[in-house]
Structures are given as structure tokens and as C-alpha cells.
């Protein structure tokens, strides 16, 4: 109990002192998870929209695959991304293994199904009359689709936030493909695992507290977007 208490005190001292190692780890974590999320949105949102708005062949099968991807174990993702990026793998020539780039790819694989599936659900749940209203007001097919996507915006944001929540808390995949190299690929979750192994709880607890804070912010944002979806406020005259 005393260790935990001392750990918290030391952790707060580290945070208060804006320890450079701590800041570097937090910054890298945000870069890796943020980069993965951006890529997941760039691919997942159009794919989710396409699945929701177009009668594609094999749509049911694709949705089943995407939904299965939502529960992918991070270590399995880590393993496959490792095999892809290892020197003998098909993408080995890119020399990405043990770089932040590899970590972004692994987290992208984890986040993309969540963003795709939740975007699809949000768009498919938009009342069909919205699309008809857009059409009778003169929208072309692209404008129609964008109108429906816009109506689903809060649900889509929920998908993005849920994806971010998944990747920031993830440790297995980034550890396998990033290698946890100090100052280069060491992020919050991998540092917590390493420092706990070493019995150095100060940094581990400091990062744990920050990770919990981040998780809290993500959940507050998630709830806010869900509330906005039900009852939007702050309507602007022009948008």
C-alpha cells in the first residue's frame, strides 16, 4: 500500500515538473494513435458510407468481416503486422518494423473496423426520408450521400472516438511491431508494462494516471457526441 502511495506522490511530482521523458512518451503516444485514427477515418468512413448507401455485392459478407474485426485481439494484429513488415515479409522492403510507422499501421488495423462499423450503423440508421428530401430538393447522387452522412455526423464522431479509445489503451500490437525502443517507439502503454516489470512504479503510475485521464476525456467526448446526436444544440445560421 505504501509503495502505491509513494508511487502516486512521485508520479505527481513527475507530472508537475513536466518531466521531458514523460512528455516525449505522451507526445509519441498521441502521434501514433492520432495518426492511426486519421488513417482509420480516411478509409473507414467512406467504406462504412459505401456499405450503408450502396447495394454492393457481398455486402453482408463484408459487414461480417468488418464486425469481426472490431474484436480483433491486439497481439494477433501485432503478429500479422510483424510478419508483413519483417525483413522476409511482403512489405519488408519498406523497413518499417520497429518504427512509429509500424505502430501506426498496427493501430490502424485495430481502429479501422470500429470506425467502419459504427459509421455504417450511424448512416444506415438515418431516416430514409432524409435521402428522399435531398433528392426532391434537387440533390445529385453525391450531394444526396453527403446529406445523409451529414445527418449521421454525431454517430460517425462516436465511431472515431471509440476507435481512439481502442488504440490508446492497446499495448500488445505496438509492443510487437514497435519494439519499445526508448525515445523512439516507447509509448504510454508499453512504458507502463516495462516500468512495472522493472519495479519502477513512479513513471508507470504517472503514465497510468494520464492514460486514465485521457480515457476519461474520450468517454466524456463520446457521451457528448451521443447527446448531440439525440438533441443538437448550438445550431448555426450558416454551416
Amino acid at each position: 500500500m505504501d509503495t502505491i502511495f509513494q508511487g502516486f506522490i512521485s508520479a505527481f511530482k513527475l507530472m508537475a515538473a513536466l518531466d521531458p521523458t514523460l512528455l516525449q512518451i505522451i507526445w509519441l503516444s498521441l502521434k501514433v494513435s492520432g495518426g492511426a485514427l486519421v488513417l482509420a477515418i480516411l478509409l473507414g468512413l467512406p467504406l462504412g458510407a459505401l456499405l450503408a448507401l450502396k447495394r454492393l455485392p457481398l455486402r453482408g459478407l463484408i459487414l461480417s468481416v468488418v464486425n469481426t474485426g472490431m474484436g480483433l485481439p491486439p497481439v494477433v494484429v501485432g503478429l500479422f503486422v510483424y510478419l508483413l513488415l519483417s525483413r522476409s515479409g511482403p512489405l519488408g522492403f519498406m523497413e518499417l518494423l520497429y518504427t512509429p510507422g509500424a505502430m501506426i499501421i498496427a493501430q490502424f488495423v485495430l481502429a479501422c473496423p470500429i470506425v467502419t462499423s459504427l459509421s455504417h450503423t450511424a448512416i444506415v440508421n438515418v431516416n430514409p426520408i432524409i435521402r428522399q428530401a435531398a433528392r426532391v430538393l434537387g440533390a445529385n447522387p453525391l450531394q444526396e450521400a453527403l446529406t445523409v452522412i451529414r445527418e449521421a455526423r454525431y454517430g460517425i464522431m462516436t465511431g472515431g472516438i471509440a476507435g481512439l479509445g481502442r488504440v490508446t489503451a492497446e499495448v500488445g500490437a505496438v509492443l510487437m511491431v514497435g519494439g519499445n525502443i526508448a525515445g523512439y517507439t516507447r509509448v504510454m502503454t508499453t512504458t507502463i508494462a516495462l516500468e512495472t516489470d522493472k519495479g519502477n512504479f513512479d513513471l508507470a503510475i504517472a503514465l497510468g494516471v494520464i492514460l486514465l485521464g485521457l480515457s476519461l476525456i474520450i468517454n466524456v467526448a463520446l457521451r457528448a457526441f451521443q447527446r448531440l446526436g439525440r438533441a443538437s444544440s448550438g445550431v448555426v445560421l450558416w454551416d
Binding site: A133, R135, G138
Partner: peptide, 20 residues
């Protein structure tokens, strides 16, 4: 299509301001 329009029975109000 842009020279005609239909008022749907359910209107299909968009989730934005009256102006928009």
C-alpha cells in the same frame, strides 16, 4: 428534377437550423 419538387408527407427535416 431541379425544376420540380415534392413536399413529402413527413417533410424530412434536416438536423440543422431552420435557415439551413
Amino acid at each position: 428534377r431541379r425544376r420540380l419538387t415534392l413536399l413529402l408527407p413527413g417533410v424530412g427535416v434536416f438536423n440543422t437550423s431552420v435557415f439551413n
